[in-house]
Amino acid sequence: MSSIIELSTTLLAASAPIRNEPVQARSTARLAALLDSAAAVIDEIGYERLTTAMVADRAGASIGTVYRYFPDRIAVLQALAARNSERLLERLVGELASDAHATATDAVLGVLEVTVELFRMEPGYRSLRVGDVLDLLPPAADETANSVVAGAVAAALQQRFDVSADDAARRAIGSAVEVIDALVARAFARDADGDAVLLDEARRVVRATLAGVL
């Protein structure tokens, strides 16, 4: 299962345009600090107003340091979105393999709970989640970021619960991932803890979407 997630993570992360990939621990830490700073600013003002100067100022770095890694603000946003996607996929490894889930539907509901936790705890995630309009994948790609996640979930469910790989199952899982992305985002739009009514509705719609299919 981990290899499935790794392949999906590679596909998403490969499109983040970082000028100089860090090869030393110090450079990796510097890049992480820049992304942490971008996430903190985005939490305060949203991603539309983010500038490279704001990232540098929050990180206590020079603007030259930012441009060493990123050609522009869009590249910063894409790199942060890629990191958010990577963190989601990493957490899905354990969630989808958990013995706590008796059924495939329970496992998909676990995906929802992982998503909720990221919205609550991961800086910048509410603005730059996997399915955001700032899509990670290039225009020529046949897939969206959400479809990459759905494909990883479908493959994991097939391994763990022997779920069918037919079109109906994949369509249902893809729809469930879209529901999770859209309704959880809506639940957190004006409530930092997530609107409980909308989150319950997301769980209900996910169950209904998968009923009779998985």
Rank of each mutant, 00 (worst) to 15 (best):
S2I: 11
I4Y: 06
I5K: 01
I5H: 03
L7Q: 14
T10F: 09
A13V: 14
S15V: 07
S15D: 08
P17V: 08
E21D: 08
E21P: 05
P22T: 04
P22E: 00
A25Y: 03
S27Q: 02
T28I: 08
A32W: 03
L35G: 01
L35T: 02
A39P: 11
A40V: 05
I42F: 13
I42D: 03
E44S: 14
I45F: 09
I45E: 08
G46K: 07
E48G: 15
R49Q: 14
T51Y: 03
T51Q: 02
M54V: 08
D57K: 14
D57C: 05
A61M: 14
S62T: 15
S62Q: 07
T65L: 15
Y67I: 12
Y67S: 13
R68P: 11
R68V: 15
Y69W: 15
F70L: 09
D72Q: 09
A75F: 07
L80R: 03
S85A: 15
L88R: 04
R91L: 12
L92I: 08
V93F: 05
L96F: 04
S98K: 11
A100Y: 01
T103M: 04
T103N: 01
A104S: 07
V108G: 05
G110S: 05
L112N: 06
L112M: 13
E113A: 13
V114E: 05
V114I: 14
T115S: 13
V116G: 09
L118P: 12
R120D: 04
R120L: 10
E122F: 09
E122P: 06
E122K: 13
G124I: 06
Y125T: 15
Y125K: 15
R126I: 06
R126S: 10
L128V: 11
L128S: 07
L128Q: 03
V130Q: 02
G131E: 02
G131W: 01
L136K: 03
P139Q: 09
D142G: 13
D142N: 12
D142F: 14
V149L: 10
V149R: 01
V149D: 02
A150E: 06
G151R: 09
V153T: 12
A154R: 01
A156L: 09
Q158A: 14
Q159C: 10
Q159I: 13
R160T: 14
F161I: 11
F161Q: 07
D162H: 12
V163E: 02
D166T: 08
D167T: 08
A168R: 11
A169I: 01
R170T: 06
R170P: 04
A176R: 07
V177A: 05
V179S: 08
A185E: 01
A192K: 09
D193N: 10
D195I: 08
D195H: 10
V197D: 09
E201H: 13
E201C: 06
A202N: 04
A208W: 00
T209I: 07
L210P: 00
G212D: 00
